[in-house]
Design a protein around this nucleic acid. Structure first.
Ligand code: FES
Ligand code: FES
Lengths: 145, 145
DNA sequence: ATAATATAGGATATAATTGTCTTTTATTTG
DNA sequence: CAAATAAAAGACAATTATATCCTATATTAT
């Protein structure tokens, strides 16, 4: 609804990688897909995108898998994942589908829509992977149900 | 992104019907599609949905077309249109795609997501077609381009 | 070096959404 | 009543999003 399926899987996957990297564990896409309850091959594609965008790091071969550096856990915000997977139409598009969102020639919902979207944007730009992983770590939140 | 294309067209169409009904004019789906710059046949389908959900009123035959009662312009909120076309997943779904959004077993983004979604919901539930049409009427807002 | 392992990449399949076309039904006017 | 008009309905087509499968490439351990 707000994010594509691919983006939802991408965020859940990145948070799971973060959680495991906190314990120095590399994880395979098989494990990730199982733990976040997502389609394996599709998840692998999404992990490729995250890797190409330097959001997570991948290592091939035995003992390989996905990981994320400790400093990146703080640096990587949700907005970066959303942008890598869904692009920035979530920021730039018109809520009523006009060709562009423009205050000079706004749709009837423009002002109200912009309020919501600005809040969403601020939230995504200020939320780090580390922050999301900590709730998981102490069992307060879940990646599947 | 936030709404489906169908929903975007639906809102724009309903606002246009409202604007014209303020001047006692019934409008055909051909005119609506032209004025909101949307695919004609697809728009006709969406107008059917709005009619079935008693959001706008349709009249067949010569002099027929779509219209909306003056009192309905205030009574119909955007939330009703969104619900009629996109269903209520926008209100009930989990932002990270968990099978359900539930505070007992929340995803890592639950609290922050709920804040945004509540604002969106309040906005949609408090915004009437009349309110949106008035900006159009005085040339402050636009339904195409 | 070789075998085993794990991600990368490309081709393909399936499902959902978006969009078109044609026929039917209801209504109004002459 | 007949002709014209406009929405309703159903079948179909195109596009996009989601998902799977198979092969290639890189890396590690033996
Ligand atoms: S013009 Fe529609 S949201 Fe800005
Ligand atoms: S559980 Fe994910 S948004 Fe509520």
């Amino acid at each position: 609804m707000m994010f594509s399926k691919a983006c939802e899987y991408g965020i859940r996957a990145a948070v799971y990688v973060t959680l495991q990297s906190l314990e120095e564990r590399r994880v395979s896409f098989n494990e990730i897909a199982k733990e976040i309850d997502s389609p394996i091959a599709f998840t692998a594609k999404i992990l490729q995108q995250l890797t190409r965008n330097n959001i997570i790091h991948s290592v091939k071969g035995p003992t390989g898998g996905f990981e994320i550096e400790r400093e990146d856990m703080d640096m990587v915000k949700l907005s970066m994942i959303v942008k890598a997977i869904d692009g920035d139409k979530i920021y730039t598009g018109c809520g009523l589908g006009l060709k562009e969102c423009n205050a000079q020639k706004p749709c009837p919902l423009h002002d109200k829509f912009l309020d919501i979207r600005t809040d969403l944007r601020n939230m995504l730009e200020s939320t780090s992977l580390f922050e999301l992983a900590t709730g998981l770590e102490v069992g307060l939140t879940y990646l599947k149900r």
